[in-house]
Every structure is written in structure tokens, then in C-alpha cells.
Simulated scan of single mutants.
Amino acid sequence: MQYRTQPDGSVSITEIEDIFKAHQNRPKAEQIKLVTITGASTITGYKPPIYEIAALAHRYGAKMFADVCQLIQHERVDMHADDHPCHLDFVAFSGHKIYASYEPIPLIIFVLQSLSLLRTENEKSRFSSTFYEKK
């Protein structure tokens, strides 16, 4: 399922929810399981409401992936704790966007929110990842 943006490049939360509603009664294999979105457009500068979309995705049982490569160097990106309705399940960005070395890994993918091996249940409930905060 692919969503097309509005003519001005923005997204419509109402239209995205309508897509979820249209898929919610389908067999489990046909329901939406992952929403992916950019954190900011390099062409228009538009920043979609990733946290609002995350809350919507979780309400319908889907995970949320945000490509924050063009966002993370400009503003704070908070994955939030797993129990937060707006949490981001996965984010990706190039390490050099946060002044990391270009070597050896050009892309950093954080999946900490979903890796239960890294934290106890108690730690999961209070864990919040902040990858960049502008001073």
C-alpha cells in the first residue's frame, strides 16, 4: 500500500486513517503492519507529523519507521518509551548527520525500542532515546 501526498507535498492524517480503517477488517496477512515515512523532505522542507502518524499506526496495530536523516541534524528526535502512544519503533539516519565518522558504517539503524534483549521490562517502560538535541 502506498500513500500519495497532497498536491502541496503534505500528508493528511484523515486520509491515512481512512486507509487503516479500510484494511482493519481484512485477514491479518493483509492488514498494515509497518508505516514508513521521512522525517523531512529535502525538496520542500516539509516535516510530516511523525509522532501523530506513529500514534495512529499504533492504534491500528502497526509499527512505525521514520527515516530521520534530513531531520536529525535540525531538531531533537525522541523515539519515546514503548508505552508512549507516539513512540517510534525504528529510525534510520546517516551517522555523519550527527557528526559521527563516515567509517565504518554509513547508516545507523536504531531498533532499540523493539529489542527486548537489551532491556528488562522495567527499563523498557522508562527508556527514551534522544539521538540529537540542538544546544
Score class of each variant (00 low, 15 high):
Q24C: 14
D8H: 06
A62W: 06
T120D: 08
I105W: 13
K63P: 02
M79A: 07
L71Q: 12
H80G: 00
S101L: 10
A55P: 04
F93I: 02
K21Y: 14
D78A: 06
I32Q: 08
I37E: 01
T42F: 15
E123F: 06
I105Y: 13
S12C: 03
A54R: 09
I108Y: 03
I32C: 04
T36F: 12
K47D: 06
I19Q: 12
I72N: 05
G9M: 01
V77E: 01
S41A: 01
R59H: 10
P7F: 02
L112D: 13
R126D: 00
F127Y: 07
L107Y: 06
H58R: 03
M1K: 15
V11R: 07
R119E: 04
T36Q: 10
V68D: 11
F93W: 08
Y3E: 01
M79N: 09
Y102C: 14
F90N: 09
K33N: 06
M64I: 05
D89T: 00
G95M: 04
A66E: 03
T36S: 10
G61W: 03
M79I: 01
G39V: 03
P48Q: 10
G39L: 02
I32R: 11
I72K: 05
A40H: 14
E52W: 15
A66K: 02
G95L: 05
M79G: 05
D82Y: 04
L71A: 06
H96D: 15
D89G: 01
I43D: 02
P48W: 08
A100P: 08
P104C: 12
E103A: 11
L107G: 08
A54E: 04
A81Q: 02
V91C: 04
A57Q: 12
Y102A: 15
P85V: 01
F110K: 10
H58G: 01
C86H: 13
K33L: 05
I43P: 01
K135A: 09
F20H: 04
E75F: 00
M1F: 15
I108S: 12
D67P: 01
T42G: 15
P104Q: 11
K124H: 08
A92L: 14
K21S: 09
V77K: 09
S116H: 14
Y102I: 11
E133T: 01
A54G: 03
H96P: 09
H23V: 09
S125A: 08
V91Y: 00
T36A: 07
A22D: 14
I16Y: 10
I53M: 08
L118W: 12
K124N: 07
L115V: 07
Y60V: 05
G45A: 08
A57M: 08
E52F: 14
L88T: 03
S94R: 15
E133P: 00
G9L: 02
K134I: 02
P104R: 14
E17A: 02
F127C: 00
F90S: 09
L112P: 06
I105L: 14
I32H: 08
R59G: 11
K63N: 05
Q24V: 12
L117E: 09
Y51Q: 07
Y3G: 09
L56A: 00
Y102F: 15
E30P: 02
C86P: 07
G45C: 03
I108P: 05
I53P: 07
R119V: 00
P7V: 07
E75R: 08
E133S: 01
A81I: 00
A100Q: 14
A100K: 15
I13S: 03
D82K: 11
